[in-house]
Write a protein that binds this DNA or RNA. Sequence first.
DNA 1: CTTTGCATTAACCAAATGGTTAAACTGAAT
DNA 2: ATTCAGTTTAACCATTTGGTTAATGCAAAG
Lengths: 202, 202
Amino acid sequence: MSQERNTEEQIIAAAKKIFSTKGLAGARMQDIADEAGINKAMLHYYYRSKEKLFEIVFTEALDKLLDRLSNVINANMPLQDKIRAIIKNYIEGLIENPQLPLFVLNELQQQPELLVKQFKTKPNFPNIQQFLMEIAVAGEKGIIKKVSPLQLMLNILSMCVFPFAAKPLLKGVTGIDEVQFKLLIEERKQFVADFVLAAITP
Amino acid sequence: MSQERNTEEQIIAAAKKIFSTKGLAGARMQDIADEAGINKAMLHYYYRSKEKLFEIVFTEALDKLLDRLSNVINANMPLQDKIRAIIKNYIEGLIENPQLPLFVLNELQQQPELLVKQFKTKPNFPNIQQFLMEIAVAGEKGIIKKVSPLQLMLNILSMCVFPFAAKPLLKGVTGIDEVQFKLLIEERKQFVADFVLAAITP
DNA sequence: CTTTGCATTAACCAAATGGTTAAACTGAAT
DNA sequence: ATTCAGTTTAACCATTTGGTTAATGCAAAG
């Protein structure tokens, strides 16, 4: 009985929320239990330890970030269109999970091994090499300027992700509120795409 | 006697190192004491509490980030040159403090009030409005394309800062090592500047 | 030499925290 | 109705952690 939702799922949902806002070190098991509306002991009953629970949540988060890339990065379409698609797709994904990047980036800096673990269990990460090659080839063909593929990809990613990571700073420095922030992000899908294409069009 | 360096300074240096790598929640007072080579009680003797110590370190870090911007952002030179200067200057600053952005961004998300506090005590933060106006004017004059000044500034900042925040991810995904990473960053000063100018040149 | 004021340390403390345990509850199968 | 398995809870435990205290060290002033 109790809640209609499965307890395990509720725990994961709660853990996701708490971990992604407070981080591994800052999260308290009690917080997660409260958020899930259950007893603290349940957490250990279903998931042995804080670390185990964290790993599940983190892996899923990182997975979501990488999957979002994979979907478009190796699609079969002209490079320019693909770049537009990547940017649109990625920003839209981040709108749904605004605090994901900072969470993942931060935990990854403190435990880089987590990435290795991810690759071992989920080898379906985006085929970046192929995408980089595509950029190089397009450069040779004169479809776009000759540019360092890695640098270009880094630029694209940077412009998509950074605003979400810097949200509080951005709000504080410019004085914009939540509504304006969302508007800014919405505009950004178009702006960044135009920006990148303008930069690499010969 | 003891060490030649002032104890207070040693504490701050140690706290800076520990806080910026582990964050407020993850840092242990004992770690800081060990790093400084002193007794834990000394930390409380000189700085009342963990929070007080953290605030000093954090404020200094944020200050450094913002100051670095201020220096160039309102200089008196052609916009194109200024953009080049900002990018070069900012990336060089980050090379010296690679983990600063993630530290500041992360703590800022968990306690946005820290920004307000900063503004109260240090009103010398970069005059962004003026810079944005400059971009708008340059757009009107046809010196650069007409673009959203805020979006442009965000793009520039993103491309400078993000690679440092995403360092472990970048290393893990591309397989590059520390040397190659530094090379990549070094190249980036030029690349990002060219990229931006190409994007906004009419 | 003694005093004085700051610096330093070891020992200690209370609260918080991750984790455990044993008992109680629940609903289905016998 | 009883049993039985999985679920849930309250109470408890050991360790960690931020913080305190009382005693000691020590260099300069008297």
